[in-house]
Amino acid sequence: MADASTIRPADRPRRSYLYRVLEAGGANFMEINGAAVASDFGGTAGDELATARGMAIADLSPLSRIGCKGSGALDWARAHGVTIGGSNNTAHLQPGGELAARLADTEVVVLDGLKGTGALPHRIETEWSLDGADGCYLVNRQGANFWFMATGAHAPEMFAKICAVDLRQAKFPAGAIAQTPVARTNCIVIRADLGGVPAWHLLGDSASAEYQWGCLADAMGEFGGRPVGIDALRRLGARPE
């Protein structure tokens, strides 16, 4: 693995949709899944952890994810080892730390865990074929969507400035999913806390990544929100629930 200081997003073919914004924000990068992920923004670990507990956003766009869609999608995914919840708009944690978000009777998205092994999405991709998966079709969620995470106690207030769905903890429990506009672009919002700190995955149109990041930064300003790297999220997640 290359020395952290030498990792530059543009050195790799797969790049986050907003790597320039992260670089301009002072991010340091680490390699995950063949791409550069912001590991931290130069602050001390304690600082970034405190920020993440209060109000932070992180870019996880280079991490693996894949969608299964079609009338047979849930059955096929289950048959290939994905645990999927019984109702739509709920997400289910997998043994490896991945998340299976059931979006409809006909669609599920599998998000890699913060470890970033990519094992489960990769396995789905290799085991699938158009001839061999009746009614199940893969969706390139990695290309289609940016993937951010918003964390911290102030995040519901921040979301209330740009999203009409009530995402407060009491109303939007862990595992809940809302597919709804956030700052006027359609997104998937998934509540998935990290070690007791409230956290929300946010997936949306990859072409709107810079726009959306700017909206989030604007909305979280009054709460002292800042971007953090995946290191802080991993530390939060490593703590017992």
Partner: peptide, 13 residues
């Protein structure tokens, strides 16, 4: 019809 339609606009450049 037994067909799936997916909007892959942002997925591809």
């Amino acid at each position: 019809l037994d067909v799936d339609v997916t909007n892959a606009t942002a997925a591809w450049c």
